[in-house]
Amino acid sequence: MSANIVTIRNLSKIYQQGDINVTALDNISLDIASGEFLALMGPSGSGKSTLLHIIAGIDRPTNGECRVQDIDVAKLNESQLADWRNQNVGFVFQTFNLIPVLTAYENVELPLLLTRMNRAERRKQVEIALEIVGLADRAKHLPKQLSGGQEQRVAIARALVTDPALVVADEPTGNLDSHSAQEVLGVLRTLSRDAGKTVIMVTHDPKAAAFGSRQIHLEKGELSK
């Protein structure tokens, strides 16, 4: 294992729900090594998705520090965060979150529109990404013309098309049948093992977690193991 890509120290997240403070994360410290495939487990409401969102720069901690590639993500403003996410993080969601009116190719190309790549360079990258997930022949299909497993693979292609160091996946197999889930988990493991990407995956499913190189558990906002 190489150097840490994520360093979390004394991280807390407290939500205000009316007059009540709800502690989602309570004083968490964690290191994630580069190239690791980390499975983040825990029951509903344990704070695992909140932790993933803070690492990915789409939520901010109440206290503590979360450094990704030595950058304190919480200190970036909205625009800097948008650029940072585009360049450093690939996202895979439980519900795929593909843009329904765009084809598989156009969905994968979206993050590249924010880079300085020209059309030919973008085309090359998109084709490689779709090739990796085994969907080069589905490039012109709209999301509704794909199966759930294929949609999630397109989402993975979109996550890796910018060649980010970090791929975060929030319950990526939650909406898939077991066969499709195996395919998607296989792709994520390949990304970590063969391409050296750091993958952080939130899951309820122990079978899915078993694909990870390390598993950690959250319970009521605290690391339990």
Binding site: I58, F91, F93
Partner: peptide, 14 residues
């Protein structure tokens, strides 16, 4: 709304 959230996550600005 979720689609717009996704675009923002991917790096598209407001």
């Amino acid at each position: 709304t979720r689609e717009i959230g996704t675009l923002r996550v991917l790096g598209f600005r407001r």
